[in-house]
Every structure is written in C-alpha cells, then in structure tokens.
Computed example of a mutant assay.
Amino acid sequence: MSNHSIQKAESHSLMHDAKKRRILGDVLSHLFLGVMAVIWLVPIVWVFAESFNKNTAPYTRTFFPTEFSLNNYIALFTDRSVLNFPKMFMNTFIVAIFVCLISMFFVLSVAYCMSRLRFRTRRTFMNVVLILGMFPGIMAVSAIYFILKAVGLTGEGLTTIALILVYSAGSGAGFYVMKGYMDTIPTSLDEAAMLDGCTRLQVFYKIIIPICKPMIVYQAIIGFLTPWLDFVMAKVICRTQSNYTVALGLWLMLDKEYIQNWYARFAAAAVVISIPIAILFIVMQRFYQESMSGSVKG
C-alpha cells in the first residue's frame, strides 16, 4: 500500500472519530439542556396547576392536584374581607408604570451627559457612583424610611408616592450600561447634526434616542420589574394592608393565620402577577427586534 493511501486512510479515520466525538458531544449537551429544562419547568407547571386546586390547604397527599376549580381565581378578586388583592395589584401597577417612565428618563439623561459631555467633575462623579453601586441597597433601608418619615411621606395615602420616589430617585445611578451603548455611537453623527443647526437637545431625541432603542427596551423592563418584584423596601415603607404591594400580599397569604384558606390562592396570585411581566417581555421583544433590524439596515 502506498504512502498516499495510508495517509488517506488515516485522515478518513480521524475525520470519522471527530464526527463521532461531535455527535456524542451534541447528544450530551442536548441531554443536559433537556434535564435542566425539566428542572426549570416543573415549579412553573406546579404553581399553575396548584392555582386551580380545589383543595385550598397547603398539605396534600399528591404532588399535583387531583381536583380542579376556578374558585381560587374568583375568590382572589371577589373576597376582599381578609386580603384585598385587587387593591394591592393596582398599587403595584401604578408604582411600576411611574417608576418605569421616570427611571427611563433619568438613565437616558445621565448616560447622555456622561457619554457626550466633558466637564471637570465628570470622572469623579462616575467613580463615586461606581463605588456606591458596590454597596447593597438594603444598607440604606433604615435611613430612607426615616427620611420619608421626616418629610411626612409614610402616612396613609402617601406611601404610593413614597415608593415611586424611592425606586426612581436613584435609578439615574444605573447609567453605566446605557452609557456604554452610547459610547459605541460615533460622535460624527452629533457633529454633523449640530453643523446642520441642531441643538444638544435635538441631537439627544432625534439621533441618540432612536439609535438606543434596544437599550431603552432593556431599561423599561428593568424599571418595571424593580418595584413589581421588590419586597424589602415595600415592607419597610408600607405600614397598612391598604397600601401593600403584590409582593407583600403574597407574603401575607403564607402567614399561618391565612395559609389554610389562601395557599391555593397564593398560587393563583403568582400566576396573575406574572401576566403583566409576560406581556411586557412579549411587547418589548417586538420593539427590540424592530430596532435591531433597523440598525442593521442603516
């Protein structure tokens, strides 16, 4: 057998072995991802099934319910004698909408200033914000509460305003991701627009904002989810049940005083509060895809 034939056979064998290893790797990868998907989906499926459980008690003999009913959803919105879930839901929704809009404005404004403007204390400000961001926000909870109490925002009917202020006031400090995206936009676009007679404000909302749509989508989601899912700050500020958010409502449903009758309703409430989040992700994903396709075409 010639050397050429031997080399060809060895090459074919190596290719065959590489193909087998690639197939084995793909099988193991898909098997691992399948197991992880099952682990991830089982709690979600269980909560959804439990929300229809006819038995409202927390302890059952089977993992999944055996009898199903819509009573949990009906009672969640009609039975307001113990927990007023619709009120809690509306409180949280109002806070989340306002915080989403305000935080988006703050982050865009601060990121634009840090990315495009040059002034003496710019780098010092960025370093201070970076250092402060290393400390967890829970450290300031007590101080924030006493400040709100001093200005009279902890009273009945004012906690919604207090929550909006607390969640949105410091949102401008989270400008680093938005600034990093703005830094990728060529400054020549700004200069060309200003040569055509645009002001800084016109450059901001006619050029920068349209290009930053993907990051605006990201900021809108973060701004909405922060008050929607937060528990610690809401627990400190909201003192009465009429001012509770959905996170506090779900926590109260698992209290030993209510858990016997509200456990299945807790699962129903968990499904209900996930609906606005799912809608937000679906809507924002469409805008994100449109903005990315537009930027590629441009």
Rank of each mutant, 00 (worst) to 15 (best):
A192N: 13
F106L: 15
A220M: 04
Y205E: 04
I222N: 05
S109D: 02
M126S: 14
I161A: 14
G155S: 12
D190Q: 08
T121P: 04
Y145P: 09
S115N: 08
T154V: 14
N127T: 07
G133H: 09
M134N: 12
I185Y: 07
M139F: 15
I216E: 00
G155H: 07
A162C: 03
I208E: 04
L189P: 10
F146Y: 15
F106H: 11
P214G: 02
I209S: 02
K149S: 13
M114E: 13
L130R: 06
V128A: 11
T184W: 11
L165K: 03
I209T: 02
I144Q: 11
L158V: 04
Q202Y: 13
A162Y: 00
I138R: 06
L101M: 02
K206W: 06
K149T: 10
L108A: 09
L165W: 02
S188Y: 15
G155N: 10
A192I: 12
M182H: 10
A220G: 04
M104P: 06
C100P: 02
R116A: 11
I216P: 01
T226L: 01
D190C: 04
T199S: 14
M194Y: 03
T226A: 00
L158Y: 09
M178T: 01
F135W: 07
R200N: 05
F125E: 07
I161D: 08
R200L: 04
A140D: 08
I222H: 03
C100V: 00
A169T: 08
L148G: 03
F119I: 15
R200I: 02
V141I: 15
G170A: 12
V203Q: 01
Y205M: 05
M215L: 12
A150T: 10
A192Q: 13
M126N: 13
A169I: 07
Y112D: 05
D183Y: 07
I185N: 09
M114I: 14
V151Y: 13
A173S: 15
V129T: 14
